[in-house]
Design a protein around this nucleic acid. Sequence first.
DNA 1: CTATTATATGACAAAGAGACTCATTTGCAA
DNA 2: TTGCAAATGAGTCTCTTTGTCATATAATAG
Lengths: 149, 149
Amino acid sequence: MQESKTFESICNLLRNHSYKVTHQRQTILQTFMEHVDRHLSAEEVYMLVKHRDPEIGLATVYRTLDILAEIGVLLKNDFGDGRSRYEFSRKDEQHHHHHLICLHCGNVSEFDDDLLESLEAVISKRTQFKVIDHDLKFYGYCKKCEEAL
Amino acid sequence: MQESKTFESICNLLRNHSYKVTHQRQTILQTFMEHVDRHLSAEEVYMLVKHRDPEIGLATVYRTLDILAEIGVLLKNDFGDGRSRYEFSRKDEQHHHHHLICLHCGNVSEFDDDLLESLEAVISKRTQFKVIDHDLKFYGYCKKCEEAL
DNA sequence: CTATTATATGACAAAGAGACTCATTTGCAA
DNA sequence: TTGCAAATGAGTCTCTTTGTCATATAATAG
């Protein structure tokens, strides 16, 4: 079935795709796994990684995140704040979740729903567009900010 | 009711917001209105505007588009191609349309639907997030590209 | 119609994310 | 252990967008 995303399994995934498992990639992956809850940008990962190994360069972080996204470990998101943000992809999800983006603090939370499946079908029927994927974002205010305002 | 978006009405809208109606802004607006069908980027508008008045600077185009978006004439979109793209906002639309983005040619078409209204209600009920706006994009292949592939 | 003034403009610099370059280093297979 | 393709780090470069500032110009008052 679905292979659980352990550190080791991801290293194997890299090898299966002919990518070398360098210590930089391991450090970046490890760091990322310690912050699954957040939607980190490359720069943020870089900062966190620096603690563990100050030798790692920013370009390597960019390259590694790209690769992890390419082999399906991470998802690259654009929340409109001018930088890409990554999250672990949960392949077990049929249709990925939607994001709730706070206009005040920028925090991103998630929401599961499969309403879009039916909408994709409607689109295919009504238009000539073959839908492959979708991206749904909600903008508003998280509880904390809503209360503070 | 809803004021129709004529050139003149937009000029008045500018004045109402204490913006001057300069000849540059008029040229940019006029140019934009001749391409309502497309989702132009600042650079593209700049190119088109150059024909009419080669003196207009790129910064002015950026500033004007920003202003037009701010006063509700245009909508600023992010289709993930690394630049903002503008379209006329149709205030008469309760809930704005969604975009169908072709992964091959990059062309953007539109799709109307109000399914999201109910989804926003569900979110408000199930989470503590106060939804203000949403953004739904579908990625896939337009008819032309689908046939060509 | 002219003077006044705050706003807008154009040219250019600069910011910021991210991709590219290339000499050096390093997994890893033989 | 060796060989080499792949990866790395440092720096440069690109691209979109914003900032700066001296000059120009709408809108307004007179």
